[in-house]
Amino acid sequence: MQRSWKFLALLVVVLAAGGWLFWRFRPHRFAGTVLQSPEPAYDFELTSAEGPVRLSDFRGKWVLLFFGYTHCPDVCPTTLADLARVMDLLGRDGEKLQVIMISVDPKRDTPERMAEYVRYFHPSFIGLTGTEEDIREVATRYGIFYNYPQGTPESGYIVEHTASTLLINPEGYLKVIFPPTFGPDGITPEQMAADLKYLLRR
């Protein structure tokens, strides 16, 4: 009788351990789209307020890339605020992550203006800009469409642009594409942080 109790106790312990293991290593359901790129992401060189910055400077860190502009009325502030929230949710894991915003409006966005703008959302964020040719090449290669529908720098204008956020892994490969954080199909900062936590902790 006592032996079968022992057996039962062992069974419970093993089942609990098995359950915990399954829960710990359960397949994660990504909110973003995961890529298995066979080639590294394009290694751009753009300008920050502290001088030139290359993507490859961040090997060893995860990099979140977002494209926008500082005169942006809605999408960019919302997204940057959401990315700042993601950093909060990540806590200490956030140290392994670098958020970079790249301007799609190089005519108006100076490196200093970009730096001031992104720091307003989070002290660790980096803002980059460059020549029109460089920006066009980077945006094109990262699947980012942008267009200036009307206006001039004097009259003020808006820029239409793709608002996805891209995650580059520490080896420089594009790993996840996150849809915009606004709109009916938008993902929440919590979903984004869950994806990142899963990747950062492995």
């Binding site: 995961v34 890529l35 790129s37 094109t140 990262y142 699947g143 469409f145 942008y146």
Partner: peptide
């Protein structure tokens, strides 16, 4: 395979 991003263009 999800090879890479198609370019953004207009």
């Amino acid at each position: 395979p999800r090879v890479r991003l198609a370019p953004g263009f207009q």
